[in-house]
Design a protein around this nucleic acid. Sequence first.
DNA 1: GATGAATGAGGCTTCATTCAT
DNA 2: TATGAATGAAGCCTCATTCAT
Lengths: 206, 206, 206, 206
Amino acid sequence: MEKAKRKEREYNLRRAEILEQAVKIFAAKGFHNTTMAEIARASGFAVGSIYLLFASKEHLYTEMLNQKLNAMYSGIRKLAAREVDIVKKIERMVISQFHFVEKNAEFCSIFIRGDHLTLSEGSIELRERMMADYAAHIAFVEAVMSEGIRAGALKGMDPRMMASALAGIINSCASKWLTMTERTPLMNHIPFVVDIFLKGVKKDAH
Amino acid sequence: MEKAKRKEREYNLRRAEILEQAVKIFAAKGFHNTTMAEIARASGFAVGSIYLLFASKEHLYTEMLNQKLNAMYSGIRKLAAREVDIVKKIERMVISQFHFVEKNAEFCSIFIRGDHLTLSEGSIELRERMMADYAAHIAFVEAVMSEGIRAGALKGMDPRMMASALAGIINSCASKWLTMTERTPLMNHIPFVVDIFLKGVKKDAH
Amino acid sequence: MEKAKRKEREYNLRRAEILEQAVKIFAAKGFHNTTMAEIARASGFAVGSIYLLFASKEHLYTEMLNQKLNAMYSGIRKLAAREVDIVKKIERMVISQFHFVEKNAEFCSIFIRGDHLTLSEGSIELRERMMADYAAHIAFVEAVMSEGIRAGALKGMDPRMMASALAGIINSCASKWLTMTERTPLMNHIPFVVDIFLKGVKKDAH
Amino acid sequence: MEKAKRKEREYNLRRAEILEQAVKIFAAKGFHNTTMAEIARASGFAVGSIYLLFASKEHLYTEMLNQKLNAMYSGIRKLAAREVDIVKKIERMVISQFHFVEKNAEFCSIFIRGDHLTLSEGSIELRERMMADYAAHIAFVEAVMSEGIRAGALKGMDPRMMASALAGIINSCASKWLTMTERTPLMNHIPFVVDIFLKGVKKDAH
DNA sequence: GATGAATGAGGCTTCATTCAT
DNA sequence: TATGAATGAAGCCTCATTCAT
């Protein structure tokens, strides 16, 4: 039936519209200081209408996190998959993440802030999905590191720690960028991040 | 006058007691899900009494952050000051920060979570102090890097970025540790952190 | 015109279907805890369609009460009319009411509960009709009592009080039965009810 | 300590004040149509203050029911206990209940209405206590009947049914009185109620 | 006629803050 | 000075009713 399809499409459209507005407000004010009324006003829906699409404020919030994060994860994986050379693969991952941060600055400021951890017992299900997705992402990066080690391109360190360190460097770089008021392109920092991660800051003894 | 001194001492003592309990609760439940009544109960004071010592919930919260963070900052500086060798200086900073995280796991889980950014317009003053302190800390680390560059021990990269990268590696390592249930000593990871920061993950071509 | 008749018939049929489902839900959850959406779902109609047949939730509710109660009243009158002997007439009335309760346990548990009195100012008209119907019923029973008195079969007490007392005995017996989980036939209690009403509980002095 | 006692007394006083006002409003409008704001306004407290004394709207409601009902039950038992003669004992029970109804007309109209059955899952504990108290009351009346049977004053019918029948007659009489606008003293009907219950309405064959 | 998505007023409850004792 | 009862604004969510399709 065509009708059902259109319904489905409209349903997703409305959800997307609300999520889009919600990101901005949540990013600006945090989970607890954002009211459903505000989201309703911003998205042009009535309060009750939002509850037709999302079971609760927490569900709306977690749903938003899940969608965005998965978009980022899959973006990273897709871009990395195109490369075989391990160094270039790492570079691609950095590029992909920086790209996402630039395009989703509002959202990222939420996520880095970390309101997501404050949620009560409400939407355990969605939260678990979020954790699982994150674990899967880390596992992916870890697998890349392991691959690099096997190939003899990377040192034989704990791949999990390596993945974590890379994430740390990327994060702190992105965070700094997010808190700046005048933003030079984040992409400019790619060589730096990759360099530090691969070769460190110490000058080689010659 | 002796009396004034004793008063002052008692005043600070009471504040410290409350802050000590507050850390635990804020860490466990986040800023918004913690009530003044809870803090009062835990610290053995009456709600009204807390308001004699702290102007508001936000002030109490921010005060706590400031104290703890400054303790950490000054700890790091003190330990780093004892060394001249740049590499050892960096190692000392990592040690100092890991030490703080181990001793203040509860507090750190708050901070990493980032509730501090969600605060409303209330205590701008205190928040600015916090930002300033953080800036001062970063400037210190940056100065260390610059020193290393001048001394020819570190590469000629942007020292601010280097400071940021180090912070990132430390943070992600600490975060990971904080979310683990079975905690092996965080100190075990020091060589790894220092190594990655100094020499990167790439295997040297020989 | 035939068409108008068919319409009328369909209209009543749809109303009946909805009322039938509504009884069950109202009985189980009470007026205020029942939603129009539930009734719609249970009866297979759309919410809007119900509003084509009933002006409001209160009208739907009151309509249901009126229909059921009138069915009971007329049943009682019809059965009583067949008898001339006053004692048998009373017995018939008890039988008829017990029969109704057995066949309409769900509905009766609503009525005994008494949600009908909680209704707001909405449907005064319908409520008055309900009151009038009840008054008519009581008047009928009262008339039976008066008839018995005139015939010399009953004592010369206030017939209204007698009617009320009979109703009370029947009600408490039915209520008790309705709250029981294992239901022995209510009919078993007919002799007891009639006996108590006619001859009381006191042992005759011989 | 004296202080604790005074606190206790004041606490109960405040509760009583609120309950007193709550009865009136609940009686007039039913559970669901009464708002906490109304009760607050009527009792001169702030909304929040009511929540210091009662955990929820349902708790407030159920508490009220429990208190009043127990007052009635114990009044009945006390008065009945003073008599040995079974007939007079029954009369005393009727008197006691009528007395309560006259003094607590507002409350009784609630109870007869029966909102208490509509309550959701909230205060199961209190509700069970209510059921238990009612069961105890019925058991008491039943015991009186059994006693009368053993003493040879009452017929050998099922004592539970007898208790139920008496309750029914009393109830319907009280209900009728409660719905009347011009109220003649309810006490006038005592002889009638006792008479019907003991000797029935049928004229003795002489 | 039939549908069911959209509406938004209104209810219960929480909790930071105050102030009389 | 210390207390903790009192306050009331504000938030999340529900659901009877409407109306465009």
